[in-house]
């Protein structure tokens, strides 16, 4: 595969208050072996050398584990590949002469800060509302592995815990719903004995915070599951619905 020339249409937005606009850029001689973010690095090097403002985009580990990179690439969260983050996407997934659209996640609850960077602190606040377990660290803390857990439950909890909180589910959902993220965070604890203790309170508080942040309502289109780089299953949303219903109807826990 030879090197490629591409046309990029990229969302540029000065700051949260400004209106954004799509700008067109040309990049030349891009190696098919380079990653998508390396391709943007090349573009930014060119922009800097021309004394232009480089394109702001989020990235950190560049190995698909931190959940920092985002980007809505040609109509898909994290681009056309399944099960990968943007940083794991390579230019071999594109063809010479392609026009690629690059946009930020679009959600009222995740406003654009600059160009392609969005504020995902809504996820942090949802986590703070209940995405934890309370453990007494007095020095007599019991070894978590001392409690026998069925292999199936452990696997499901682990699969849910694979969520990196990147926000692709929100970005791709036609309703801008955060239910896949929240359900993964609810499920990873709800499936384990250590998490059961606070399960009712957790689901009430996390769902309450999710709604408060202005995310949309889930209508079960299933787009989130398809685009999730970590393959978080829709089963988690059904589990959260069950957890929420039983917490609301049966438990005496209240929000707060």
């Amino acid at each position: 595969m030879s090197n490629m020339n591409l046309t990029l249409k990229i969302w540029r937005q000065k700051d949260a208050q400004s209106k954004g606009v799509m700008e067109t850029y040309e990049v030349k001689d891009i190696s098919p072996d380079s990653s998508f973010l390396e391709m943007l690095d090349v573009l930014n090097e060119n922009l800097v050398s021309q004394k232009q403002e480089p394109i702001a985009f989020d990235h950190d580990c560049r190995e698909g584990i931190c959940g920092t990179c985002s980007l809505y690439i040609s109509g898909r969260a994290h681009g056309p590949m399944r099960g990968v983050t943007t940083c794991q996407l390579h230019m071999r997934s594109f063809k010479d002469g392609d026009t690629i659209y690059i946009e930020p996640w679009r959600s009222k609850a995740m406003p654009v800060i600059k160009d392609l960077i969005v504020d995902r602190s809504a996820f942090d606040r949802i986590q703070q509302a209940g995405g934890f377990i309370s453990v007494n660290t007095s020095g007599n803390t019991q070894d978590a592995n001392g409690i026998p857990i069925p292999k199936g439950d452990a696997d499901k909890a682990f699969d849910a815990a694979a969520c990196i909180g990147c926000g692709a589910c929100v970005a791709t959902c036609k309703n801008g719903s955060a239910m896949l993220f929240v359900s993964a965070k609810v499920s990873q604890f709800a499936l384990l004995p250590q998490g059961r203790v606070e399960a009712a309170k957790r689901v009430l508080n996390m769902v309450h915070q999710m709604d408060k942040e202005g995310f949309g309502n889930c209508t079960n289109t299933g787009a989130c599951e398809v685009e999730c780089p970590k393959g978080i299953s829709l089963e988690n949303i059904a589990r959260m619905n069950r957890e929420y219903l039983s917490a609301k109807v049966v438990s005496d826990e209240k929000i707060g």
Partner: peptide, 29 residues
């Protein structure tokens, strides 16, 4: 629900490809 869900994304995507990840029926309820 439709009004709320529309409000959850005030600025729409310039280029979107929803048919890649969801059924027609689920998007046009």
């Amino acid at each position: 629900l439709t009004i709320q869900n529309n409000a959850a994304r005030p600025i729409k995507y310039v280029h979107n490809d929803p048919s890649a990840n969801s059924t027609f029926s689920s998007r046009y309820m």
